[in-house]
Design a binder for these strands. Structure first.
Lengths: 221, 221
DNA sequence: GCAGATACGCTACGACCAGTAGCGAAAGAG
DNA sequence: CTCTTTCGCTACTGGTCGTAGCGTATCTGC
C-alpha cells in the first residue's frame, strides 16, 4: 500500500491520507471533483457495501477517471475513511440542563448517524480492516473514536458545573468511571445498530440512560 | 450466489448453511476434512483477515482441493460463519449463587473469547460482510447473537429461582429489561475489545457489573 | 466380490477488481 | 506565452471468486 504520488518533504504527515499537491505552480486540482468523489463514495457505499464498491464505479459516478482517484487517495480504504469521517464531525454535546438529558441527546444523535446504511457498512468495514492494520486502526481511533470520548468528558464538565457531581470524588476515579460509561454508551448503541440490527428509539434511549444513571428500576428487589 | 450442489427435497433448511449429501449411498464425505477445513479457516482468518483469506489458501492449508470447499459451502462467507460460530458454542451460564456472579462469569468468558486475535478479526469481518448482505446478517444473528441472549435469560431464570427478582414484576417488562442488559453487556465488551483495543480485566468486569446492577457508585450525588 | 453411486483431486477457465504505466491534451500560474 | 501540473484514456499485471469437466478413489447394497 505504498503511496504512488510523491510527498512534499516539508509536510511529513498529510492532512487526512489524501495525497496533496506539491506546489501552487501548474494546473490546480479540481475542488469540485474532490467533493464529487467523496459524495459518490458515500452513495456507492450505501448501495453496494464495501465489497460491492469498486473504484471504477466511484470514478464513473463522480464523472472522473479512475486514475484521478489514485492521484488523490492511495487506496480504497483511505478514500472510505475520508468519505465517512466527516460525518462524525457533526456530533456535539450541548448543555440541556441535566446529565441525563445531555446523554440522551448525544445517544440520539449518535444513533441517528449509525442508522444510516452508508455509515454502518463503512464503519464496520473500517473496523474489520483496522483489526488487521494497526496503522489504520490508530487513524480510526484518532478520527472517529477519540472525538466522541471528548464529548462525554464535556458532558461531565457540564454536570460538574451544574453541581450534579459529588465534589469529594477523586478525579482519577471519576475519569475511570467516565471511561466505563463511554464504553457502555458507544458499545451498546453500536451493538444494537450494527450487530443486532434493532432500532434505537427514543423510548429505548430513555430506558437505557435511566438504567445507566440510576439503580436498576424494578428488576431487582 | 446460487448453491452449486443440489438440495434434498425433504430437507428445505440445511443444518448450518453446509450443503448436505443426498443419500447414504456412495462414498461418504470425509468427516476429518470437515474439521480440517474449519480449523484452517480460523487460522487463516486470524493471520490474514477477511480480505487476505482466500479459498485456495484454506484448501491448501486443510490438505483438500478447492473444489471440495465449494461442494460443502456455497460461498466464502458461509464457510466463515460456520468456522466462527462453533467457537461461541462453548459459552454457558452456570449458577454461581448470585446474579452479579453469574454475569461476571459470562462476561469474563465472553471477553476471553473476544481477546483471541482470530476471533476479533473473524467477528469484525463477519459483521462487516453482514452489513451488506441481509441474509448473512440474519444467519449471524441466529448462530451467534441469539444463543448468547439465551444465556442471559438463563441467568435471569436462576436469579428468579433464588428469589433475587421482584416477583410482582411484569414478565413482558422483565424481558425488555433483559434485552437492554444483554445489549449493554455484549456491546460494551465488544466495543472495548474490538474498537478501542483496550483489555477487559477482572477488575474492569467487577466495576462494570456493579455499575450495571446497582446505583452508580459515588459518581452521582 | 461386484456394480452403482458418490466424493475427491486436478486442471483449466471466465469474469471481475485493485492498482499501475504511459500517453496526449487541457488548464491554470507567472 | 511558456511552463507546470492535472486530467482522461487505454492498456496492462497480478490476483481472487466461483464453475466445469475429467479420471480416480471409496463406500453401500446386493
Amino acid at each position: 500500500m505504498a503511496p504512488t504520488t510523491r510527498q512534499p518533504a516539508e509536510h511529513p504527515d498529510p492532512p487526512a491520507g489524501k495525497t496533496p499537491l506539491v506546489r501552487g505552480k501548474g494546473r490546480p486540482r479540481s475542488a469540485t471533483a474532490d467533493q464529487a468523489i467523496l459524495d459518490a463514495t458515500r452513495e456507492a457505499l450505501a448501495e453496494l457495501g464495501w465489497g460491492g464498491l469498486t473504484m471504477g464505479h466511484v470514478a464513473q459516478r463522480a464523472g472522473v477517471a479512475k486514475t484521478t482517484l489514485y492521484r488523490r487517495w492511495p487506496s480504497k480504504s483511505e478514500l472510505v475513511v475520508d468519505a465517512i469521517a466527516s460525518l462524525f464531525d457533526q456530533l456535539e454535546c450541548a448543555d440541556r440542563g441535566s446529565l441525563q438529558a445531555d446523554i440522551e441527546a448525544v445517544v440520539a444523535r449518535f444513533a441517528e448517524l449509525l442508522t444510516l446504511p452508508e455509515t454502518q457498512t463503512a464503519l464496520l468495514a473500517l473496523f474489520a480492516e483496522g483489526s488487521r492494520d494497526p496503522q489504520l486502526r490508530r487513524r480510526i481511533r484518532e478520527r472517529i473514536v477519540q472525538p466522541q470520548k471528548v464529548l462525554v468528558e464535556h458532558g461531565r464538565a457540564n454536570a460538574q458545573a451544574r453541581g450534579e457531581m459529588d465534589p469529594d470524588l477523586d478525579p482519577a476515579t471519576a475519569d475511570e468511571e467516565i471511561g466505563i460509561i463511554f464504553d457502555t454508551i458507544a458499545g451498546t448503541v453500536e451493538h444494537r445498530l450494527l450487530v443486532s440490527g434493532e432500532p434505537v428509539t427514543a423510548d429505548w434511549i430513555r430506558r437505557f440512560t435511566t438504567l445507566l444513571l440510576g439503580p436498576l428500576p424494578g428488576l431487582l428487589r
